[in-house]
Simulated scan of single mutants.
Amino acid sequence: MTTNNFDTRIVSTIEELSNPESYKLVCHEHLKGEPLPSNKNIARIIELVREILFPGYFANTTLREGTTKHYMGVYVDELCTLLSGEILAGMCFECEDDTTNKISKHTARAEEKTVELVEFLPELRSLLVKDVEATFINDPAAKNFGEVIFSYPGIRAITNYRLAHKLLQLQVPLIPRIIAEMAHSETGIDIHPRAQIGESFTIDHGTGVVIGSTCILGNNVKIYQGVTLGAKSFPVDENGNPIKGIPRHPIVEDDVVIYAGATILGRVTIGKGSVIGGNVWVTKDLPANSFVVQKRAKDLPYTDGAGI
């Protein structure tokens, strides 16, 4: 390839990439100096939360009498700095008011949301302790709490979810979804931060689990890999656009077990104490203590495979 041909093609591509018509739907314009959310900082926020909630597990610190308070102070201080910055960045990113300085407008609110999140950490720890206990009790292969905390993807995903859910309740934009999607990428477990999940939640194995945004799960629910708690078809408005924000995902009451590969779609209620077998498809309400499994092979009509 000649130098002239190389340069011509590169310049032509740059011209094409610079055409506003090609990026008008995927371009974010912001003023110089306005912060943008940082995946690196958000990942560190998640690490810090884990270090704070599970002392002695995720940080290279020696915990002994008299040192815990010191380390908690160090971690919380770093968390406040990073979190307030990321919340501010999310607020500036989604703010459409171009008549004012967005940083000045949102700084105090971002700092207040940061304090409220930090104040929630003791409650968050209590919730996660119950999740760890439930996971340990429900898995005969688990040797101890430490193994569950260190290595179980379900606990990692639930930690991200409960952190993201609280930030969403605090009306923090964008950052909760990033936190949830980080867990999705890392574990294969996709929990929308808007979902409502009760205490003592267990996800066994976990890969391929999907929990939609308007799901409501009660206490002591256990689900296995490949479970989908999703929506059916989306209602549309007069212009044919999907209507957002309406309840369209399942309600799962207390003490329900859902086995691998089950799919539950729509705003249906799975009654308390029910058991949903593997690879079944549920689109209707089930009363309490239901037991749903596939038909056994001997109950199905025989076929030799002809025409399949």
Score class of each variant (00 low, 15 high):
19 N>G: 00
243 I>A: 06
216 I>P: 00
292 V>P: 02
126 S>C: 06
302 Y>R: 00
49 V>L: 08
92 C>D: 01
282 V>R: 06
124 L>V: 06
221 V>T: 07
77 D>T: 14
42 I>Q: 07
190 D>A: 06
54 F>P: 04
298 K>E: 10
52 I>E: 05
75 Y>W: 13
197 I>C: 03
263 T>M: 07
195 A>V: 04
220 N>D: 15
34 E>W: 10
80 C>L: 12
157 A>Q: 03
36 L>K: 13
307 G>R: 01
46 I>L: 09
147 E>N: 01
173 P>V: 12
302 Y>W: 01
47 E>N: 15
57 Y>T: 14
72 M>V: 06
82 L>T: 03
150 F>I: 14
300 L>Q: 08
300 L>K: 10
45 I>V: 14
82 L>H: 02
73 G>Q: 01
213 S>P: 07
146 G>M: 02
63 L>K: 11
62 T>M: 11
220 N>W: 03
43 A>H: 07
259 Y>N: 04
198 G>C: 08
185 S>N: 14
252 V>F: 06
91 M>Q: 07
216 I>V: 14
196 Q>I: 14
188 G>I: 07
52 I>K: 12
23 Y>P: 00
201 F>T: 03
298 K>M: 01
173 P>W: 12
307 G>L: 04
269 T>R: 13
255 D>G: 00
53 L>G: 06
252 V>D: 00
89 A>E: 02
18 S>Y: 09
88 L>N: 07
63 L>F: 15
72 M>G: 06
141 A>W: 05
130 K>D: 09
65 E>H: 12
127 L>N: 09
125 R>H: 12
251 I>M: 08
118 V>I: 15
3 T>S: 15
174 L>K: 05
141 A>Y: 05
105 K>R: 15
85 G>E: 06
299 D>N: 11
15 E>W: 05
102 K>R: 14
37 P>I: 09
